[in-house]
Computed example of a mutant assay.
Amino acid sequence: VELQLGKMPIHDVIAGAVGLAIGLILANLLGYSFAKIPVVGDYIPVIFSIVFGYLGITITIKKRRELTGLFDFVPRFMKDFAKMREMRAAPDAAPEESAKAAPTADAHAYKLLDTSVIIDGRIADICDTGFIEGTLLIPVFVLEELQHIADSADALKRTRGRRGLDILQRIRQSTKVKVEITNVDFDDISEVDSKLVRLGQQVGGKIITNDYNLNKVAQLRGVEVLNINELSNAVKPVVIPGETMRVTIVKSGKEPGQGVAYLDDGTMIVVENGNRHMNESITVEVTSALQTAAGRMIFAKPAH
């Protein structure tokens, strides 16, 4: 029991203790009512204590976030009450001062970065635009993984790791987003992605990633995810059938006669009978567009 408690987060231990207390109180109330039954009356309180104590622990730990959410109105009520008192105490306050006192978005809403999204580099450009609100939280175990990759004997991994460290330094020097480093670690978990999900649960933050598997695992465990691949697909220009564009055929497609071109944002264009125009810049007419998990794909044919 001591070993298991040592592995559990403190908020789970507190929730379990509260649930155990509630379960034992209910067991005592019900057990007293059944204690006078002949023969089995002496055993019923013990059974109730075991069953209700166990249910109290498991239910409060699993439903901790939902249960604490029921009491979120208390700090909001106290905050609104304090604001009303301030307004009554200073009724002649200037409109500008009232605007300054108005609540803004939570500055401590944490966004957690995983290793892959840091190495990817696009997150730095997104931060520069000012679209990221709140605080970027960089766990120490992510930094250690980046350092491990940067020190790898493999040249490609070493380059990726150093790029990630450079991107992280650029983000920290940005004036449009606040960055914090946390030393929180989970010794009972070996995988960095699993640690990141656990930290997201602990701080109530969102994970920014471009890792498809981490995206799914985090969502299954109740952690919100911001996937920059989905963001990139969402802001790509929309094309409609009949629209024309100028492209350069760079390689052959999977089907006979097909040619493949790419837009500046990386969108693949499959051109019917485009193979005959290899390495040529031609005007094509869009016939259809397909949205896939990997991104948007456009089908076209040479314009006549």
Rank of each mutant, 00 (worst) to 15 (best):
T175L: 12
Q173E: 09
I37H: 05
V238Q: 08
G222I: 04
R76N: 11
C127H: 01
D211E: 12
A153R: 15
V197S: 02
V13T: 07
G204C: 02
T244R: 07
V286M: 09
A99L: 10
A153F: 12
A94Y: 12
M87I: 13
A82S: 15
L290G: 12
I61N: 13
I10L: 11
R158T: 01
F34T: 08
V250W: 02
L24M: 01
R88N: 10
V177T: 09
R162F: 06
A289D: 13
T129F: 13
K83L: 10
A303M: 08
P256R: 00
L214N: 04
S98W: 14
R172V: 03
V235W: 04
E144F: 06
R85T: 10
I10N: 06
G31S: 00
Q147T: 07
G253C: 01
I228P: 05
S190V: 12
K251Q: 08
T159E: 10
F299D: 13
A293S: 15
I61Q: 14
I249N: 03
I126E: 04
L3S: 05
M84Q: 11
R163M: 00
M8D: 01
S33D: 02
D166C: 01
V18P: 07
D151N: 15
G222T: 00
E97C: 02
G164F: 04
S152G: 10
R162Y: 03
V197I: 15
R170W: 00
L199W: 00
A17Q: 08
L112K: 02
G121R: 01
Q169L: 10
T115R: 02
G295E: 03
E2M: 12
F48Y: 12
G53I: 05
L29G: 03
G205D: 07
D211W: 11
G19A: 07
L137F: 04
I171M: 08
S232K: 08
M278K: 13
I228A: 09
V238L: 13
L5P: 08
K301F: 13
L199G: 03
I171R: 00
G56A: 03
G259S: 05
T248L: 11
G69Q: 14
